[in-house]
Amino acid sequence: MNYVIGIDGGGTKTTCLFLEADHYTYPEQPKVVQGPGTNPHQIGFDEAGKRLKALIEKGLQTFNLDSAQIIGVGFGLAGIGRPEDEQEMNKIVQDIFLGLSFSENCNSFIGSDSLAALKGALSPQKEVGILVISGTGSNAVGVNRDGSTHKCGGWGHLIGDEGSGYHLSLKALSCIAKAADGRGEETLLTRLVLEKLNLYNPEDLVRYIYGRTHEKHEIAKLATCVIEASERQDEVAVMILQEAAYELVLHVESIARRGFERDTAITAAGSIFKHSKVLKQHFIQQIETKGLGVYREPYAPPEFGAAMLAIPEN
């Protein structure tokens, strides 16, 4: 039995799916392994390559597969989307294929995690739609009836990523500081964040944040505190999530203006959509109110889309 591999490489984690060839529907019991994040702009292209190779090796061993059974590998990676990024990543992928003894005829797809996620989110019968991603980072992508691709966001955590886990975390830290100063409302976020970081006072955040350089995912993990506080009806946390939903709707509006119809399927992916009912409900409500399209739950996860994009052409 031959297989195609689909990889969803985010900033925090990477998921690798081994999909049986000729069974191109999402399986009830998927063969999946996971590893650390592989965004090359966060950890470097060489380190991303090492992590990707190690994860594929882990999957081959876990599912008792041979390299000769792999006929295609799809790499949907956060931070990849510009031609120069894809070219550099292609060199890394060739080294991975060589190191794993993959066939020289093994097909590959190298592109952004958003393209892979859109391919997975749309049902096999649908070719048109818009996908919004909110995980560690955020972005959106849409495919129109003429096959053209349109993107929005993806500017990274320093100048973009509105509505993402990283963005939520920064908002939470700001609200905690304001509450401590008496410039803002008291919030449950203070206790939840301090407990998560093993700190005692809000003032301790200064040393924690500025005392050393943090990887993007270390800050983004505080988004879980925002979600937990919102579930306890904390008004500050709810406001942060509603503002994030608004930012994500702006992504949809930008793409929808480029020739998409009002009945366009709009779907969402990423850990924030998965875990925050407040953000997801507010997002769907605004989509419907503004008449931007029709919300649909995603058909399958991004790694499935990456696998589909790696299928060799007959």
Rank of each mutant, 00 (worst) to 15 (best):
E215A: 15
R232D: 08
I266S: 07
Q242K: 13
G74K: 10
Y246K: 14
L118S: 05
E231G: 00
H251Q: 12
S103I: 10
L118G: 02
L194N: 07
H282M: 00
V294G: 03
I80G: 00
V278T: 15
R296C: 02
G153V: 08
V236N: 01
K126E: 13
S123P: 15
L131H: 04
Y299D: 09
T190V: 13
K151N: 11
T264K: 01
E297Q: 10
M89Q: 11
I70L: 07
N107V: 03
G291H: 02
V294S: 08
L17E: 01
I227L: 06
W155D: 15
A223I: 01
E127G: 14
H214K: 12
R258E: 14
G11V: 06
I7S: 06
N314Y: 15
P302M: 00
G76D: 05
C152N: 11
E185V: 00
L19C: 13
P27R: 00
G79T: 04
A245C: 12
I219D: 02
E303H: 14
H251L: 11
Y166E: 01
K50S: 03
E247H: 13
M308W: 12
D95I: 10
A179I: 07
E88F: 05
A21C: 09
A177V: 09
E186S: 07
R258N: 14
I287R: 05
D161H: 08
S254T: 00
I176C: 02
H214C: 03
E203M: 04
